[in-house]
Design a protein around this nucleic acid. Structure first.
Lengths: 131, 131, 131, 131
DNA sequence: GTGGTCTAGACCACC
DNA sequence: GTGGTCTAGACCACG
């Protein structure tokens, strides 16, 4: 899998996994019916303790995103896509709102804020075509 | 004071105080030489544990934003303004970058992201203008 | 065979097979001397891992319910009936006791409990009687 | 607290705690706003590892039964009572249904089943008045 | 091989 | 003091 974990993120590791699984489903990188890497596999790949991964997977199960198939492993549920797309939007919107709220309270003016946004947008733009 | 604390913010309470003091200085709401509410006063006003307020003030002192004046209390230092304005920009930019990074990793496209940004910008716009 | 397997039953699949064989013998649906479906047959019919069926059959052999007949397969032993009837009562009584115990500890009163019991009794009543 | 844990219950320990908290709330033994024993307290009382208790509490939080108060601990939420009463009924009914279903499939007749039920009801009756 | 559970113990943030 | 998180490692049930 293609998860990137940053231990100093502020977010708990299990939460980063949780979010990234949701985001992968929302973007179609993970499809319903597809198996998710096993606990041990993901744990060793990311150099994490299996328990940490287990917690993320457990919560995804309780949200109905993942389904357990006895003796096989965990797979993406059919109803996961819609759910994950909603979640992705909500999760990002929530963080965005929180930042903007703080910016507003600090009297940062619109122009400056937009400027920051644009700067960070281009800065974070993935590598691509000619300039 | 006019701080608004949200315990479910993700940010620690002491950190919210810390940031809001800085932001108030940056915006001119708090001026150098001006006194800051006493520990007990702020703690009771915001219904917080005095230790929490103490921790925020302590860090502000160690950063040179607040200065202790014997027999008076804590007040905004003269060199605080420039410092706070820089901090404000950096703190907000940092959060913004973090959100955008996650959005990018989740394959959320630019258009949708911009749309979210605009929506939240207008949504968070303080009451004003013609009714 | 006429087994019904529910993977989300709480009971292990092999245990469900085990119990249903015993219950079938107890009720006379399976008679001593009668052959039991082969490992592969049952496994494919129920879409189970052969190991799962094997485990159930193995335990039934070790309890003397099933006997291996060379060149033929597994069949119900002669002494199975009495044994299975006893087991059936004990197994059901045990589960019933466990439920009632928990209900008692949760302060659910007798009347309500009886009501539940009656409701579930009629609800689970097999189709029959005058229409 | 007055929880009784049976490690050989079939149910996971964290699940026993989970259910018993719900049942205590449903029966009024735990009231909304009341604090629940701290992780360490309950863990030492029941001779369990704090993590085990933590898992039960965490799930109760995610179900909205418990609410975290920063630096104070966990307490019963206001909406918990209704929720827990429903849950209690559902949980017990579910187990009851499962037992009766199996009994039915095993051709155990009504009379015998009722007899068992009555026997276990009186057997599990708590100690009380004169005989 | 899969996940589930539990233990033991560490460190941290917060109040 | 509170809970949160993570690690390390063991054992079990299941398929």
């Amino acid at each position: 899998m293609f998860f990137t974990i940053d231990p100093d993120n502020g977010l708990a590791i299990y939460d980063q996994i949780l979010r990234q699984v949701k985001f992968a489903v929302a973007s179609g990188a993970l499809q319903p019916g597809q198996r998710v890497p096993s606990l041990q596999e993901l744990a060793t790949t990311l150099a994490l303790n299996p328990n940490t991964v287990a917690r993320a997977y457990r919560e995804l199960q309780s949200e109905g995103i993942l389904e357990m198939v006895r003796g096989i492993g965990l797979e993406i549920s059919s109803k996961a896509v819609k759910r994950c797309q909603q979640d992705r939007d909500a999760l990002i919107r929530e963080r965005l709102r929180s930042v903007l709220l703080e910016a507003r309270q600090s009297q940062l003016d619109d122009a400056e804020l937009r400027e920051m946004f644009d700067a960070e947008m281009t800065a974070s733009k993935p590598k691509s075509g000619r300039k």
